[in-house]
Design a protein around this nucleic acid. Structure first.
Lengths: 204, 204
DNA sequence: GTCTATAAATTGATAGAC
DNA sequence: GTCTATCAATTTATAGAC
């Protein structure tokens, strides 16, 4: 339930900040925009979050958590490995499509020269892929999949999921001749396409 | 020859602007930073480029040209199609690695809500993939490659090339445990990996 | 908690001397 | 062409009334 009436001001601010920061980037986002979008006074931003940096940190932490935390949970299910992969692609892709600005926001801020805040939050997050690596190696040993580098595998999956969404402003005009429907149709079929590519890489 | 002494002030400014804009984004880049980096006075920026918007436009045009113009020229060579694909991946990948900030810069600016300048420049650029599409369809007809959607094919190639570079600040710490050498080694072998994946998709 | 008013610093841009 | 000085607007942040 997302569009429920906001309970308190702090929530209103955070929701507005999520929108503005992800749409405009840290430098492009202005405190006034966030206040306007939240329907409150600018001073209240500082009352709840002492500074723009702190508000940004809260938003970045949320955004990164949204895309990174627990995405590997699917690999702890009872499904066979191929079903797990398929479900992972499905879940991740739909998360990106539902929040198309978030991946761009995360990558954009992390690539800024002077943004230690974002980089520090990544380290603190403690996200790691150990479980996934163990799982893949186990599947190889069992003979379920071909010899496969787990690191390379996960990067390829993420690349094929993320790029078509963050590159939409390039793909829609150049590849699909500004045909919005053609792009949407392409994205709709993307899950099956990625699954097929990945399976062809790992199936014995 | 890149590190040759700058001839004139206009070039110095543009070179500095390229660096600062691509590293910090349009909103994060400040005219003072650019002046400092160029070793000149802030006023001179306005003397040569009337406004920040105009300077940004010049940089964006250059950056987009660097990554988009003539990248399809390789498909006009006499090589057989598989060699063309391999060379394309090699060229594109090395262009990205040599200019790792540029793809992020282009995508970042295009994804900003209120950046008409960048979006307009894309349209004006006139880049299109017609030639590549014709070529792929011809190869299918000849039976050289499997039934393949050219649009999907080119997006997959670009995704596999671009993502590992723009996601470096995420991949190096999380996937490679902050091992810089491991990441570099991964990138070094990337061309062969992508080529293999793409070939497995199109070879009969 | 929420607002108005205002400070303090930053920043894009211009005027004018040389 | 290049610089200094300065303006005008923006923007983060705080003080203080209610």
């Amino acid at each position: 339930m997302k569009n429920i009436k906001h309970q308190n001001t702090e929530e209103k601010i955070l929701d507005a900040a999520k929108e503005v920061f992800t749409e405009e980037g840290k430098a492009g986002a202005k405190m006034q925009m966030i206040a306007d979008r939240a329907g409150i006074n600018k001073s209240l931003l500082h009352y709840y979050y002492r500074s723009k940096d702190k508000l940004f940190a809260a938003v970045f932490k949320f955004a990164f958590g949204k895309m990174a935390s627990r995405i590997f949970d699917i690999f702890k299910s009872d499904d066979d490995f191929f079903t797990q992969i398929e479900k992972f692609i499905e879940n991740y892709l739909s998360a990106i499509i539902k929040n198309p600005f978030i991946p761009m926001f995360i990558l954009g801020e992390l690539n800024k020269k002077h943004n230690n805040i974002a980089a520090e939050l990544i380290i603190k997050s403690g996200v790691n892929i150990d479980f996934f690596e163990d799982l893949v190696n186990e599947q190889i040993k069992k003979g379920n999949i071909r010899e496969t580098n787990p690191k390379k595998l996960i990067i390829n999956i993420l690349a094929l999921c993320v790029f078509p969404v963050i590159a939409k402003p390039l793909i829609e005009p150049i590849i699909f001749d500004n045909d919005k429907n053609a792009y949407n149709e392409y994205i709709k079929n993307r899950k099956d396409e990625i699954t097929q590519i990945i399976f062809s890489q790992i199936k014995p």
